[in-house]
């Protein structure tokens, strides 16, 4: 069993734990009790070999260990990251989530409102999820490190054309000085993409998560040898 498979099975298991067992975490009973158990009858076997034993009764909640990651702060190993990783292949958001156009996008319980996407937004959210689940782009790289939507976009789901501010990227990848240092070219220090003659620019000018990244410098400096992940 490779690492990915371990991860996936771990997550599938946690769903059952959440919905089937630990209502108290959310305070109220979910609207759709069978949402997970409809597919997952038995979950213990889905946990990865390295997962701590869950023999004790009653079974503890996933959320006792894995935070839900619906806060403004980026988290790793968060519950929502794990659960999405486990369902990367089933792209239909509404298998678990509920959505009312331009009114709510929710989990099947109150208190976790994730924004008000329109029909068009949903179309792009699904595409964005696909790129996160499996693509040569940076979103996929984030997924492999268990960084989910909220890790970059915060509490609410990103709507169509929402972008990510530099501070958000720098929360994990910063501070800027560190990036400047890391990207300083050996040969010509003034060809540093993170400290250029364009001043402070958006990270997303070059680094795009859900589609192809692009070295903006090359738009003019065609002979520069510069490469970034997620670009051609």
């Amino acid at each position: 069993m490779n690492l990915k498979a371990i991860f996936l099975s771990a997550i599938v298991g946690t769903v059952v734990l959440l919905v089937g067992v630990s209502h108290n975490v959310w305070g109220e009973k979910p609207e759709k009790e069978s949402i997970c158990s409809a597919c997952h009858v038995e979950y213990r076997s889905l946990l990865p070999a390295l997962h701590p034993s869950l023999q004790k009764e009653p079974v503890p909640s996933c959320l006792d260990c894995h935070e839900p990651a619906v806060s403004e702060e980026p988290l790793t190993n968060a519950f929502s990251a794990l659960i999405h990783l486990g369902h990367k292949d089933s792209a239909d958001c509404l298998e678990c989530h509920t959505w009312k156009e331009e009114s709510s996008f929710d989990l099947p319980h109150p208190g976790a409102a994730l924004g008000k996407p329109s029909d068009e937004d949903m179309h792009w959210i699904e595409k964005a999820f696909d790129a996160w689940a499996d693509s040569p782009y940076l979103a996929s790289l984030h997924a492999s490190h268990a960084v989910t939507c909220s890790g970059c976009h915060g509490k609410n789901l990103p709507l169509m054309d929402d972008t990510v501010e530099n501070e958000r990227c720098l929360a994990c990848h910063g501070p800027m000085e560190k990036l400047v240092e890391r990207s300083a070219p050996q040969d010509f220090p003034d060809r540093n993409p993170h400290q250029s003659h364009l001043g402070e620019i958006a990270c997303t000018v070059c680094h795009r998560s859900h589609w192809e990244s692009e070295v903006y410098c090359l738009g003019c400096h065609q002979n520069f040898d510069m490469k970034i992940p997620g670009a051609k």
Binding site: H197, L198, G199, I201, A202, T204, V205, Y216, C220
Partner: peptide, 10 residues
Amino acid sequence: MPTYGGNSII
């Protein structure tokens, strides 16, 4: 453009 300044900045 995604950056300000056009030709002026360069």
